[in-house]
């Protein structure tokens, strides 16, 4: 099924995938987010939740309350008025301690990219990142906008354990990890920021469409902020659009 560059792909009798293209592209992602907002506003009974990803929106629904055959046409109607400007989103400033024990792959990334370690850090800091998708683990933010000089294939052997707060790069993407997890990406640094804390009134820091800028702190600065996170629930600053 197609229409205005849109494909409706059935994902069984409890989900529908609405696909807008086949590329990692800010305009395609903007249409995904625009449909997401339109669906939220439409509040169709039986829609349980939606999952925006790079180029598609997955709609999970209760088939006992919503006829799968009726959802498609409703989506097509909503999609007729989407805009492809990226939504403004909040802009977070995320502190990172680079290299050393916090970023054990920094030297190797420097070697493989032909940059000095400081050059890798400078290019990583210069990026204007957008949260394209949250997945893999609770609150794990996939960031688009990584400097092309830092694009590297994943590690041949993934690490079984990487700490919460790991700031890493993999392929064309960057990420902030939320909890301890295995990873095949390259670890450049670590942030004391907790992207996921189930006990917090807002458990998740980042939303799809938010922007992220990194700010360098020393290893000591990291330790101080980590203490404030633990003691007083410190969160990084953000600007509303």
């Amino acid at each position: 099924m197609t229409g205005a560059g849109l494909r409706l792909l059935p994902a069984g009798d409890t989900a529908l995938t609405v696909e807008f293209g086949d590329a990692v592209d800010p305009r395609i992602n903007a249409r995904v987010l625009s449909l997401d907002r339109a669906l939220e506003a439409a509040a169709i009974p039986g829609v349980i939740e939606t999952v925006p990803t790079y180029r598609s929106l997955q709609i999970h629904f209760d088939p006992d309350r919503l006829d799968a055959a009726a959802l498609g046409p409703a989506v097509v109607r909503l999609a007729a008025t989407l805009d492809d400007e990226p939504p403004p989103g909040r802009t977070w400033t995320v502190p990172v301690s680079y290299g050393g024990e916090h970023g054990i792959d920094l030297e190797q990334v420097a070697e493989r990219t032909g940059l000095a370690a400081e050059g890798v850090i400078a290019r990583h800091l210069a990026g204007d990142y957008r949260v394209y998708m949250i997945g893999f683990q609770p609150g794990f933010a996939y960031l688009g906008g990584l400097d092309a000089r830092l694009h590297l294939p994943r590690r041949e052997t993934p690490r079984l354990k990487t700490p919460a707060g790991t700031v890493s790069i993999g392929g064309i993407q960057a990420a902030v990890a939320s909890i301890e997890a295995p990873s095949g990406w390259h670890l450049l640094g670590r942030t004391p920021v907790r992207a996921f804390d189930p006990a917090r009134s807002e458990p998740f820091l980042f939303r799809v469409g938010d922007r992220v800028r990194f700010e360098r702190v020393t290893a000591d600065g990291y330790t101080q902020l980590a203490r404030r996170v633990a003691d007083e629930g410190w969160r990084p600053r953000f600007e509303d659009p």
């Binding site: 994902a11 069984g12 989900a15 995938t17 990692v24 990803t53 790079y54 180029r55 997955q58 996939y142």
Partner: peptide, 8 residues
């Protein structure tokens, strides 16, 4: 390109 996964 990574997208959503439905049950089953």
């Amino acid at each position: 390109i990574s997208d959503g996964i439905a049950p089953g």
